[in-house]
Computed example of a mutant assay.
Amino acid sequence: MSAPDLRVGDEVRVFDQNGRRMGQPDAGWPGTVTKIGRLLVTIEYRGKSAQFRLDTQVVNDGYGHRYFKTLQQAARHQRLGRALYTLHEHQIRLAVGHRLTLEQIEALADVARKF
């Protein structure tokens, strides 16, 4: 994953692997970039501040359960989730390691909806 193009003041979304148990909204917690360094970005969310690695977008701690996405990344992720859910409802499974683009998966989901 390449480092996202971020600026101080940009809005992002913060996610946690255990987010559902923590009351995390489906779209993630809103956060704001407050500082950008060479390797780390500081994001303020839920009334606290955390540092995330720029290269992986994962929180800079020993666990790595939290990560952030830009608004564009979060929107693409939601689109993918909706399309995969539609395929799942129609009992269509994609092979692990498939090379389909988001747009191809959405087109396949549209075809599945029509049946």
Rank of each mutant, 00 (worst) to 15 (best):
M1V: 15
S2Q: 05
D5C: 13
D10W: 04
F15Q: 10
F15D: 00
F15W: 02
Q17D: 10
N18C: 01
R20D: 05
R21A: 08
G23T: 07
G31M: 13
G31F: 04
V33F: 04
V33N: 03
I36N: 01
I36L: 08
R38V: 14
R38F: 10
T42I: 11
I43A: 04
I43T: 03
G47S: 05
K48E: 08
A50V: 07
Q51E: 08
D55C: 03
T56M: 15
T56G: 06
V58E: 06
V59P: 00
N60Y: 13
N60P: 02
D61C: 04
G62T: 10
G62F: 13
G64I: 09
Y67H: 13
F68W: 03
A75K: 15
Q78K: 04
R82C: 09
A83L: 11
L84C: 10
Y85S: 14
T86H: 01
L87E: 02
H88K: 06
E89R: 15
H90I: 15
I92D: 00
V96W: 04
V96S: 06
G97H: 13
H98T: 09
R99A: 13
L100W: 07
T101F: 13
Q104E: 09
E106Q: 15
A109I: 04
V111H: 06
V111Y: 07
F115S: 10
